[in-house]
Design a protein around this nucleic acid. Sequence first.
DNA 1: CTGAAAGCGCTTACAG
DNA 2: CTGAAAGCGCTTACAG
Lengths: 333, 333
Amino acid sequence: MATIGDVAKAAGVSRSTVSYALSGNRPISRETRDRIDAAITQLGFTVNAGARALATSQTMVLGLLLQFHDDEFPPAMLQYILAVSDAARELGYDILMVTDTDGPGAIRRITSSNRVDGVVLLDVTHDDPRLDALRAARQPGALVGLPGDTAGLDVFDLDFEASARLLVDHLHGLGHREIVVVSPPRHVFERGGAYAWRFRDAAVERAAGYGIRVHCHHGESQQPAIERSLNAILDERREATALIVHNDASIAALPGVLRERGTVVPRDLSVVSLYSRDFGRTFLLPYTAVETSPDGLGREAVQHLVRRIAEPDYAPSVVGLIEPKLSDRGSTA
Amino acid sequence: MATIGDVAKAAGVSRSTVSYALSGNRPISRETRDRIDAAITQLGFTVNAGARALATSQTMVLGLLLQFHDDEFPPAMLQYILAVSDAARELGYDILMVTDTDGPGAIRRITSSNRVDGVVLLDVTHDDPRLDALRAARQPGALVGLPGDTAGLDVFDLDFEASARLLVDHLHGLGHREIVVVSPPRHVFERGGAYAWRFRDAAVERAAGYGIRVHCHHGESQQPAIERSLNAILDERREATALIVHNDASIAALPGVLRERGTVVPRDLSVVSLYSRDFGRTFLLPYTAVETSPDGLGREAVQHLVRRIAEPDYAPSVVGLIEPKLSDRGSTA
DNA sequence: CTGAAAGCGCTTACAG
DNA sequence: CTGAAAGCGCTTACAG
């Protein structure tokens, strides 16, 4: 394995000159640069990342903290992972992906050992136990998901309250007077998935303002309970003319359920939801929906994090709530 | 940030003694050990991973190379990712996840810079361009997916040929004489997804031995094409009494399609497939199937890789084809 | 435009 | 049982 010393010897220069040629941090004469380049390609030299990290205190690695919960739906999680990874790479960073059950411990482990320059937390909950560990770390972090206390943290999420209002407004504009909201499973609320109640409560409040009746239910996360619960809800709420589904697993299963029941959308029932375009193509989801863009969220988190790494005080902590956009697919009447 | 020198000073010993206390590589007296432990907790010391890596030439990081193709189904990929990550962690390794479009380049980048001690390649194809880069690397690798040339590589995969035979035997035993095989999308074959033709060809051959007629078709990877193609296949092959579905996207969509057609399984049609238990629960899949266990595969790849890192020559290269197991869910008659 | 040297934070023979 | 020292492969003031 060739080192910078080997290159220096082969090129007949000092190690520092090779280093500067590599970094471009000082002018190098045409000829020496050529000799160094030749030596590098001839020896197949690559900088040792660990040694460089030790010398510069920069690892060029970002930690990605995630944990897969049983009540989540795999496709959405993968979209976030890929978005974060791709965005990081474009900025020159690699991703250390950590899936420990012990989130705070994992943060401590990778930050205190200086394995990473910053961390991205996925799926942040209201009282996320990882946040104390993050605040105690030398490295900055970026969250995807809104915690109760955002002090000192860079946070990114869809604006679920605005999303709820947008969907309720849409249904109200079409004259609906009685609607059903299918929220994430109860367990998501219990473990502090704030997006769940932020959406639901905002929907309820907005509907109340219009005098619309709202019935709130929970979806399930595993088959066959998903279909069973949807059927039970639809049986119980026959008067409702519209359905707002805020749950990936439920919306993915909905087409099958409605087909079985002989319910035609939007003739018999209007349906709106929240999901990404890709998600809608993986499944067969022809519903008017708020576009969730995990891609955009992941990118934004990474970009801010990298900025924060470079300039810790470039701005006070930012809370970026992405404004919802409606994709009208004609599933409402 | 406390260093090993700070700990040494606080404990009144030399840096080497602290280092040995940390590694346990030589006996330390009771008292000095206690003083060192006290200093460590008081200073909140953690070993700098980069410095240790530089000194030991061990990063305790494994590269995970993956690339998400449009013709893949997200849930399965996530299962592999989590399995590899969890298995690595249990063995003391972290995961550097790399999703570059340029796979060979990514391998070169992380291996030649000594960022990792070994790499796991997911989704290996027949002529995988990453293999040359892997063979040229200092670090060993473990593949998930069977390439055409396995020389010098540790490879793990489900035995798709045995799986095909198992399913055909099962159907033959029940008296089926005309069956349909739904393979992965055409594009998977074109990019060298060997599992696709290994399964199909073995099924065809086995069926021929029994005098069973087989009709081979391709599934699709994106809705609404998935449903459309399934309907087209079922329309065209009304004489067939059994369906073998070797494609995640198609099997996930099948229940809806059959419901719509009023086809009852197994009364009107027998159905068998290949998928993992978790996958069957995410969707509503009540079909007799070969258990694919991405979990087990991921673990095995990691375990062998770690073994290979520790003892490069502990064995000649291994090709581990996992024997298929059938989960009978009563979808055949 | 270039070099010699110190330093990043560890580990590990070598000596006692 | 413990310490002084060299070395891992880089970067970067400091000097010329």
